[in-house]
């Protein structure tokens, strides 16, 4: 069973409010990217938004983590936000992002462990 199916209608509204509160805490560049990502993803279908929640949660998490790391939004998403959204919603580009995240994971581990002096 999908965990997200247990989120009820009223929870959905609450989830949206929570998303917006989190988005407000982002730096300006990241927040602008969030607005554009929403604009791209929302008109894609007539559904309630329930299916989109986890995807948006992931996107917000990504923006939050990168903002905390001091990475610019361009470093993460490139200048092609439309392409990123198409990838999320089923385009060909997702594999590239997954590869990029993979590289980021390994290089962050290497960098932070070497800073530790081990």
């Amino acid at each position: 069973m999908n965990f997200w199916e247990t989120v009820t209608g009223s929870d959905l509204t609450r989830a949206w409010k929570a998303f917006e509160a989190r988005a407000k805490a982002l730096p300006a560049g990241h927040r602008a990217a969030w607005e554009r990502i929403k604009a791209h993803l929302l008109p894609r279908s007539g559904f309630t938004g329930r299916d989109l929640l986890p995807v948006l949660d992931g996107v917000l998490g990504l923006l939050e983590e990168t903002a905390a790391d001091g990475q610019g939004v361009d470093e993460v998403l490139g200048d092609d936000i439309a392409g990123f959204c198409a990838a999320l919603a089923g385009g060909e580009g997702l594999r590239d992002y997954r590869d990029r995240w993979r590289e980021q994971l390994n290089s962050n581990v290497a960098r932070k462990l070497s800073r530790l002096g081990g």
Binding site: N2, W4, R44, S45, F47, D51, L52, P54, V55, D57, G58, L88, A89, G90, L94
Partner: peptide
């Protein structure tokens, strides 16, 4: 989740 979202779009 992206896989599920895609499936929900029927694409």
């Amino acid at each position: 989740y992206t896989d599920i979202y895609r499936a929900s779009l029927g694409g």
